[in-house]
Design a protein around this nucleic acid. Structure first.
Lengths: 250, 250
DNA sequence: ATAGAAATGAATGAATTTGACTGATTATCA
DNA sequence: TGATAATCAGTCAAATTCATTCATTTCTAT
């Protein structure tokens, strides 16, 4: 049995029953306990399930709930590194803007304070925040079906009431000349507003985003600090314009 | 049996029966008394139930409402009847306000048009609407942990931009003298606003709500039509003040 | 075909969970 | 009220599950 096949079998079993025991899976797949353990560890690392003593359970409001697809989740380890560091920047009492997106979603796992206030335009983020007992506000407006993000003029209006200590943003392109860019104008203007309304802003961008230029400009490089996972090509061209924090594995 | 599975089984049993004895759970789960005791201690620590001598009970002390999941399973057949009829009132091209709550949530299953626009303050509703390909807007504001509803001044401000053809509202109390009432003032004012902003309004209330009076008044009876599932006591006292549609089984 | 990489299964001691037992506390009923 | 039974919290040893390591097998790319 090929590895992906086993993973799919595990997920299918889990979805049917809600929880599975390792011993069941050993029997079901005719493999060793070690292998199943490794599978579960992997599946947990891509947020497909939650390991518990004796087996695994479905996650409650997971980000990739509907379409579990291993290949879809790219650079998950890098994202976790970046997310973990970003979360560590949050102080007690902070008011935070959390942009929709997978990396910022991952941040929520690492937040270790619940005396903060978080505003987000990500529907999925709200569930996770509430689960952790964090005060959460959502922007109003039209909900985009694909990303479950809230965008448009209403969202911007809704945002303008707030002032933030820190804003954390995902981004599609980071370029030393063209600044931060994204393919969607609604998203761009929302991100730009968030930056303006925040004392400090952080862009979470794994190395694949560097050198990329998308359609719409969000802001100049110096409007936000960058958190990334590797010392990219032309590092100096970025670091001379804004603060670049490179988070390497511990 | 895995710990999580046992916890879920305990909660399910408890929700069905209101109280459980430890001896029952020992038999049900084929574990020892010690284990069940530990489970109950844990479940109490996360406010899932209340331990009592000999077992455990649901906690719905005083003011706090049952949680979203608990509500979801009450009067489900009646709610479906009401929801189905309410959904049939929606016309092509309508702009709709859909209040948070379990009955309005059930409506979404029965909506058979997708050229409408729906505004809601229910987080769960958004997911379901999008799933059906319906244009959905969410109100902005603070998210309540228990009900996953958006409430507060921001939600009201957010609402005032819209005008609706029809508003569908859940409610806690319907009384021929005191009108529509709910235990929470934030929710009350939001419902009231929705009624004012809509050409027509409908209150979805199963028979258990009639004669009940909750803490805060939402509106007088005549401000909305009532959709219910049974010809209640004092039916005439309601029907002389507003339209009452009684949906009986098909 | 072969070297290198990846996946596997077995074995280890550590950590967690479990069930039985204890004496203390609480409920029941005459 | 007092006697009796049931239930309780706390402790401990046994059983289960865990992470980690390592040798072996399988896969992959030349």
């Amino acid at each position: 049995m090929i590895i992906e096949e086993r993973h799919r079998l595990i997920m299918d079993t889990l979805k049917k029953k809600g929880t599975v025991k390792i011993s069941e899976l050993v029997e079901l797949t005719n493999t060793s306990e070690s292998t199943i353990r490794r599978d579960l560890t992997f599946l947990e690392s891509i947020n497909a399930l939650k390991r518990v003593h004796g087996g695994a359970t479905l996650l409650k409001g997971g980000f990739n709930e509907p379409s579990y697809n291993e290949k879809l989740i790219q650079n998950i380890e890098e994202k976790k590194l970046i997310a973990g560091f970003a979360a560590s920047l949050i102080n007690h009492g902070d008011s935070i803007y959390l942009d929709a997106g997978t990396t910022t979603f991952e941040m929520i796992n690492y937040i270790d304070k619940n005396d903060i206030v978080v505003v987000t335009n990500g529907l999925k983020h709200i569930d996770a925040l509430i689960e952790k007992g964090i005060d959460a506000y959502i922007l109003g407006g039209k909900v985009r079906a694909k990303t479950k993000a809230i965008v448009g003029i209403d969202a911007i209006k809704s945002l303008e009431k707030f002032r933030f200590d820190k804003a954390f943003l995902g981004i599609n392109g980071v370029h030393y000349e063209y600044g931060y860019t994204t393919p969607d104008s609604d998203e761009a203007i929302l991100k730009e507003s968030a930056i303006k309304l925040s004392k400090e802003s952080f862009v979470l961008a794994d190395e694949s985003k560097f050198g990329e230029v998308a359609f719409i400009k969000v802001a100049e490089l110096d409007k936000a600090a960058i958190i990334t996972n590797n010392k990219v090509e032309n590092y100096e061209k970025y670091s001379e314009k804004t603060e670049v924090k490179v988070v390497t594995e511990q």
